[in-house]
Design a protein around this nucleic acid. Structure first.
Lengths: 202, 202
DNA sequence: GTGCTATGTGTACATTGTTCACATATTTTC
DNA sequence: GAAAATATGTGAACAATGTACACATAGCAC
């Protein structure tokens, strides 16, 4: 039940992502260094390049993973809300913001345009899925859809949620505020947003 | 009319900010290196430390400057809108998003929590001013105000605008879209938001 | 002028991303 | 099952970067 002390690691690509996860969680994204990741995975620095062409490629994979985690969290929140007969969008929006609050480094990693290859296929796919999950309550199709085709209301919904998440994580809002109060602020904001989604305003 | 070839530079602190500006504009934030800035300012690398304790401090100063530029742009847009009898918030919101589109590196620099000292006094002040300028149309006081005290509607307004700006700059929205279309999208989004600000929804 | 302080220089060092020739494991092929 | 081919990990090296420090030079106070 130990590490098989084999020369080959067996699952290094994943392990490196776990290392990014670990270091980013504890010390922030800026502290994530290739060498530290390699060390955490118990492997020499240069071995990372067998699995990722770049540090940037590693970050891209990590961003993709984070996007998928957030999408899953939203999906779970939606399922619960629907079962309880509550507003699905509200639940999904709160899940989005809560994720940003709880895992700021992950949230930052998802959108670091200059530090990832944002036209990577897997990354794009994950971003599309996230977009579809968030705006799913609005459109007829929950299918995977391109963020370019969002309606004004869908774009508004995403923007508001995404914006508050960013203001909490990287902005001057709620810096010294405990988590619970931030969530309440988020609920208030989404409540204030609801009138924009009345059928009469379509 | 040349550089006075004096041993002392005379205005290095500012010149270094100009260098960040220049490099970030041309090659992005990630390309900004202390040594490159020093070279651009015509000075040795170590001299930068006489004016900024850190690279991070330099970035903080640059972020502050960028915040003030954005605040000024919003202020100008507001003045024009008021003179023309147009909706002030809409004009200010568009100015915010347009700034992000036109100067993405500057916009990113403003909110890089992990790369700046976000509790620096000047930075905080600039962020407060920006907050006040954006939400000025809502509150009774346009005075400098703490972002913590924003109402739900003010927070919604900022979140929506900030969110779309971020989606354009670092997100999957509008990647291949020409500037003008992004602006139109922004106008649509803000239009969709307006019902949330009706007095009946206060 | 003589100091005092502010500002810029040059050298040096540790850390980082990355490369490359080499070593070792795994898989394929006969 | 041996040999060949391929995949995966290693170690030493390099250039670039942020930063420290002892020193040089400028500007100012008296």
């Amino acid at each position: 039940m130990k590490k098989k002390k084999t020369y080959h690691h067996g699952n290094l690509a994943e392990s490196l992502l776990d290392a990014v996860d670990e270091i980013a969680s504890q010390f922030g994204l800026e502290a994530v260094t290739l060498r530290a990741c390699a060390k955490l995975a118990g492997v020499s620095p240069s071995s990372a390049f067998r699995h990722y062409v770049d540090k940037r490629a590693l970050f891209t994979a990590f961003a993709t993973r984070a996007l998928n985690q957030l999408t899953a969290a939203m999906s779970a929140a939606k399922a619960i809300a629907e079962k309880d007969g509550q507003d699905a969008f509200k639940a999904v929006g709160i899940a989005y913001i809560a994720f940003a609050i709880d895992k700021p480094a992950f949230f930052r990693a998802m959108w670091r345009e200059e530090a990832i290859y944002s036209n990577d296929d897997h990354y794009r796919q994950a971003a599309n899925n996230l977009s579809a999950q968030l705006t799913g309550g609005f459109a007829d199709t929950i299918d995977d859809k391109d963020p370019e085709t969002l309606s004004a209301q869908e774009l508004l919904a995403w923007s508001a949620v995404h914006g508050l998440a960013n203001l909490f994580v990287d902005g001057p809002v709620g810096n010294a505020t405990p988590r619970q109060q931030k969530i309440e602020k988020a609920v208030e904001m989404i409540d204030a947003l609801m009138p924009a989604f009345q059928p009469s305003n379509a």
